[in-house]
């Protein structure tokens, strides 16, 4: 069989927010050998007890179709959307980035943060914590620039995504 190209897909899964639902989704990926590049989950409807799980994965078209079909047949799953297949969409990620330093490096980190529209959410005389949202690439670029300036650690929330326009994802 000819080697098919792998593509990155952002998949949005609306689920009942019940015990074990995340384990089901993760177990499915682990058990069937699909990869997870990023995963986020949070309740999005308190009254209906719905959560949205956003998964970034990659695979050949056949594998990605298989992933979606496998997700869709889980009992607590309401809907599976593939944002790469359903028109334009927006992806965002949040990161908290701690940088420590003094003198020029400290000033430089603040200057770059300003360019990237990262906000300072904590500061000591020796450190900053920046908060930043954006695409994963933008976050990666900022983190790379912080490395030589005293990057201490990073916490990232993973990708969340939603489709553009009036229709639901």
């Amino acid at each position: 069989m000819e080697e098919e190209k792998k593509h990155r897909h952002t998949i949005s899964v609306l689920v009942d927010n019940e015990a074990g639902v995340l384990a089901r989704v993760i177990g499915l990926f682990a058990g069937r050998g699909y990869n997870i590049e990023s995963l986020t989950v949070a309740e999005v409807d308190e009254i209906e007890h719905l959560s949205r799980i956003t998964i970034v994965t990659s695979g050949t078209p056949m594998v990605v179709e298989q992933i979606k079909a496998q997700l869709d047949r889980l009992v607590p799953v309401h809907a599976v959307g593939d944002l790469n297949m359903s028109g334009p969409h927006i992806e965002r990620e949040l990161a908290l980035i701690k940088v420590s330093g003094s003198g020029d490096a400290r000033v430089e980190s603040l200057r770059i943060a300003d360019i990237f529209r990262a906000r300072v959410v904590d500061s000591t005389t020796k450190s900053f914590v920046f908060e930043m949202t954006g695409s994963a690439e933008k976050l990666n670029a900022f983190i790379a620039l912080m490395k030589p300036l005293g990057l201490v650690e990073v916490a990232r929330a993973g990708v969340v995504a939603i489709s553009r326009g009036v229709d639901s994802t």
Binding site: M62, E65, Q66, A69, Q70, D72, R73
Partner: peptide
């Protein structure tokens, strides 16, 4: 009846 059976091994 199971969409995940379709195109799993053979297109």
């Amino acid at each position: 009846i199971d969409p995940s059976s379709i195109n799993k091994n053979v297109p």
